[in-house]
Write a protein that binds this DNA or RNA. Sequence first.
DNA 1: CGGGTGACTTCCC
DNA 2: GGGGAAGCCACCC
Length: 101
Amino acid sequence: MREGYYAQIWKVVRRIPTGKVATYGAVARAAGFPGTARQVAWALRGAPRGRLPWHRVLGAGGRILLPTEGGLEQRLRLQAEGVSFQADRVRMDRHQYKMNV
DNA sequence: CGGGTGACTTCCC
DNA sequence: GGGGAAGCCACCC
């Protein structure tokens, strides 16, 4: 089933190391599907929870876009990994993970 | 195959 | 820098 696209996205997300983050758009590009940032969110939502560092994927500018509790959990998880924030955004200048396109 | 739905982005005011 | 509009696209009726 829908493994083709999702599997690629998950593979990229799993490459993001602890303490680093990436944006939806960057993940999409690295996976070989430029312009599908929105679909990355689908892939994360439909991902098998527990074995994917979903919390390391953020919106452009380092913003957490996951609403309500999920967003809070995401922030806590990131902070637990040593990711620093400035107001509501992650300091991308320090934590953005550069992927080999 | 048409239409609605977003954990998106970018541009413009 | 907030707010709105438009572009994009996999997924599910």
